[in-house]
Simulated scan of single mutants.
Amino acid sequence: MENKYVICSEAFVIASYAIEAMLCEVASYPSPGLVSSISKGSHVDMDHYSFIKSTSILSKYMVLFAQEGYSNRTPKEIFAAIRHIGIEAESEMFKGTKGVNTHKGMIFLLGISCAAVTKAMHDKKNFEGIQDIIKQMTKGLVVNELCYMNKDKVKSYGEKLFLKYKVEGIRGQVERGIPLVFDYSLKVYSENSDLKLNNRLIHTLISIMQFCEDSNVLHRHSMDTLGEVKQKAKHIISLGGMTTEIGEASIVALDSEFIKRNISPGGSADILAVTVFFNSVEDYFNHISAT
């Protein structure tokens, strides 16, 4: 009973970081084209309250993802287990939002992330070991689910975009250990800790948009539009992003433009939430090692 309590306690801690990250992402403004606490962005079927509802529903599942990771099983076995949980989480999300997709990508990314973190804790590995666990969990995912998929049974946006553009999307990111987070955005988020939280979030979001192969943009538009989104983000970062007045004004203007053009960089928003999550996790690991 004591061991079970310890496992559940750690699962709740890690899940709380995931929930906080989800809420921080949707609260921040101006997030170009995205739902925030101020705006619906380029969306007509959801708002800030939709995300509060969805996050509340998913809080249970973040705990379950984390509990599955705290195990003697191999990373591959854990991944198989959390995918079943993910299917249930998606179903409950859609019930709560009346069919609106608020967090499908987030469920996948944060589900893997929560399980990988608690697996590292179980195996007494440090923060740097988490990325390798993610790679072990998802090894072969692109080949097995995209390269060899039945083209007559294609359903998801990710599958359709792979067929059209050969973009690996979220599957490719996790199979490589979410390098956009571990090799880039975590550093950006850390280096801008002097900014107010809202501004830090937006600055990191724009930084991510420079490099993210955003499936939401591709689904709504085209590869040319995605290239344009990346270039606009790079220009804003060259102006200083949220660290300068001209950079901030450019982000506000970009938000208005994206709303008019129906552009929503939701993939970048998901990566932002994962960045916030792993920043909290890294702090937690550092605290544990220091005590």
Rank of each mutant, 00 (worst) to 15 (best):
S113H: 07
E168S: 09
E168I: 12
L23S: 06
E20K: 10
K166P: 01
L254W: 03
K119G: 01
Y148L: 15
V154G: 05
R83L: 03
S9W: 04
T204S: 14
F51E: 09
V217Q: 04
K160A: 12
E228I: 05
S42P: 03
A27G: 00
I7E: 10
I237T: 09
R261V: 07
T97R: 11
V274T: 14
A89S: 11
K135N: 13
S238Q: 12
E77Y: 00
H43D: 04
Q173K: 07
G241P: 12
F94D: 06
A18M: 08
L197W: 00
K124N: 14
S71H: 10
E90D: 13
V142P: 14
F211E: 04
P179R: 01
E20C: 06
G41P: 06
L109C: 05
K125A: 04
R171M: 14
T97L: 12
S37M: 02
S16R: 01
K40V: 01
G169T: 11
V63C: 05
L23Q: 06
V188D: 01
V167Y: 01
K139W: 02
L146I: 06
L141R: 01
Y165K: 03
I19C: 12
S113I: 07
Q67R: 08
P75L: 03
E145N: 14
I170S: 09
L226Y: 07
F211G: 00
I14H: 07
N144G: 13
K53S: 11
S31M: 00
I246L: 12
T225L: 09
I82E: 09
I38N: 09
L110Y: 11
K164T: 04
K119F: 04
I271K: 02
E245T: 13
Y284E: 10
S56T: 14
S91M: 15
H48L: 08
G86Q: 10
T97A: 14
E128H: 06
E77P: 00
A18C: 08
L58P: 03
G169A: 11
V188I: 15
F278D: 08
K230M: 13
S280V: 03
E2H: 11
I134G: 01
I87P: 00
K166T: 10
P265M: 05
V35L: 05
F12R: 15
R171I: 13
E175A: 05
M149E: 06
I38F: 07
V154K: 00
K232A: 14
A15P: 07
R200Y: 07
E2P: 00
N101H: 15
L64V: 05
Y49H: 12
L186V: 05
G267R: 02
M121P: 00
F285L: 09
A290Q: 13
G111W: 03
K232P: 08
G267Q: 08
K234G: 00
H287L: 03
F285H: 09
D123R: 10
K124L: 01
T244G: 09
G140T: 04
H48Y: 15
Q173Y: 13
S31F: 00
V63M: 06
A273Q: 00
K98I: 06
G41K: 08
L110R: 05
S50Y: 11
